[in-house]
């Protein structure tokens, strides 16, 4: 199978998955709770007002028709309007998305760096104290709630040492020119160094918090796969040919260990986004996670549904990307 056919097949395979996820979201948001209008307006609103609102939102139609319209609108990129602000939900989410993407990318990079270095070095020193430290670290950090770690960092670096800000993305009026919406990236692109420094300062604590917590799984995965990879014949062969140890480990062994790591990575991305919701809340980071929680507080269920749908789409898209990258690295997967 050529890479192109693989990509097409993989995307087609994702279609039922997306449909199922969207259906699950629909069942949770529309079938279980009964009536979003009633919860929004409260029990005391006059019947006519409730009926009018219900009609406006199409909630008086049979559930199966609502389901069809929900899928059709999603297909057109329409998530409906917020019950509260009356703005299209897709626009509101669009404003928030760059903040979440910025945070998760930085968190992911930090986790990856910790995971690769600690995991690889632990595997090289298999069954030594250093190896044990990696295992203890990954079990321990797995037990730490991400929001608690965030608070401890706020306390130490924000309150005690006063080095870093504890909330928000950037001070008012310092936002760089809008290109991608990711402040650090935009500020660097426009060579706006003051904004870049402030954006980075705000980004450090949330992304380190998220990265550390996610790194638990990375350290464990890299270590386990590297132990296996290092014990294989091609590693012996590479050493016998006199290749430098560093190259043997990082180029030959790691490259082979990366394929199973990447496969599991696809599943860990879900963990990253779940962690991001808590991290965003802890640091008042204005991303999709804080949007979701705010909208739940205001009982704006159309917006809640929209946010969940976006998370579902992001996760499915990323898992497709991971699989395609995998197939590109390792052609065997395509068969």
């Amino acid at each position: 199978m050529s890479l192109k056919t693989y990509i097409i097949a993989r995307i087609l395979l994702a279609v039922p998955m997306v449909l199922i996820l969207l259906t699950v979201v629909f069942v949770i948001m529309r079938v279980i709770p009964g009536d979003p209008v009633l919860t929004l307006l409260g029990g005391k609103a006059p019947i006519e007002v409730i009926e009018a609102k219900r009609h406006e939102l199409g909630l008086d139609k049979p559930i199966i028709v609502q389901y069809g319209e929900y899928l059709l609108n999603l297909f057109k990129g329409d998530l409906g309007k917020s019950l509260l602000t009356e703005r299209p939900i897709i626009e509101e989410l669009g404003d928030r998305l760059p903040a979440t993407v910025e945070l998760t990318i930085m968190g992911f990079i930090i986790a990856l760096v910790i995971g690769i270095f600690w995991g690889v070095e632990a595997a090289r020193r298999h069954d030594t104290a250093f190896d044990l430290s990696a295992r203890v670290y990954s079990i321990f950090i797995y037990s730490v709630p991400v929001f608690w770690l965030g608070m401890v960092f706020q306390l130490v670096f924000g309150v005690w040492l006063k080095w870093l800000p504890v909330a928000g993305r950037i001070p008012p009026l310092m936002e760089p020119k809008h290109i991608t919406g990711m402040y650090l990236f935009d500020a660097l692109l426009t060579a706006n160094w003051d904004s870049a420094r402030e954006a980075l300062r705000h980004l450090i604590l949330p992304s380190v918090t998220l990265g550390l917590v996610i790194s638990s799984v990375f350290v464990r995965m890299v270590r386990g796969n590297m132990v296996l990879s290092l014990s294989q014949d091609f590693v012996k062969a590479a050493r016998a040919r006199g290749i430098k140890e560093r190259a043997v480990v990082y180029r030959h062994a790691l490259k082979n260990a990366m394929v199973p790591i990447m496969t599991v990575l696809g599943l860990q991305l879900a963990l990253l986004f779940a962690g991001a919701v808590l991290t965003e809340t802890t640091f008042s980071w204005p991303g999709i996670g804080t949007y979701l929680i705010q909208k739940i507080r205001y009982r704006d269920f159309m917006a809640v549904q929209g946010a969940i749908v976006i998370y579902a789409l992001i996760v499915v898209t990323l898992s497709i990307v991971v699989d395609i990258v995998n197939a590109w690295i390792d052609p065997r997967i395509r068969y």
């Binding site: 998955m17 996820l21 699950v24 979201v25 949770i28 948001m29 279980i32 599943l267 879900a270 963990l271 986004f273 779940a274 962690g275 919701v277 808590l278 979701l292 929680i293 739940i296 809640v304 969940i308 998370y311 579902a312 996760v315 499915v316 898992s319």
Partner: peptide, 11 residues
Amino acid sequence: SFPGLILAIAV
């Protein structure tokens, strides 16, 4: 495959 916490939040 869906982020567990987010699913739990929705429910």
